[in-house]
Amino acid sequence: MEQSETLTRSDVVVQVCHLNELPPGESIRVEGPGGVEPLAVFNADGEIHAIDDTCTHQDASLADGWLEGCTVECPLHAACFDLRTGMPSGPPAKRPVRTHQVEIADGVIRVRVAVAAVTA
């Protein structure tokens, strides 16, 4: 079972932008390639974090949200998520958002997204 799970996953690397295009406090929404949910990438005081862009509570873009420390607050209903873990800190969100691995090379931000393959 465990093995087949790793086999059904593959990684997609999404290019985001140059590091200097995302200064501290800023966020950007990135449309992933087919099969990849839109991503929200944040510069939280110099640390780059990537999560799924869509709030788990209701349809809203977290890249539009209010960034404070390592927490983003949904622009609509104020659900707060920890950018490091994706965990919600209170209502109305009950489910975490997915977090993604960030890679920075040559000043370019890329996000590695695990995608479940269609074939099981």
Partner: peptide, 10 residues
């Protein structure tokens, strides 16, 4: 205008 709104609210 959620993004700009959030900036102003902040």
């Amino acid at each position: 205008r959620p993004k700009e709104f959030t900036r102003w609210r902040r």
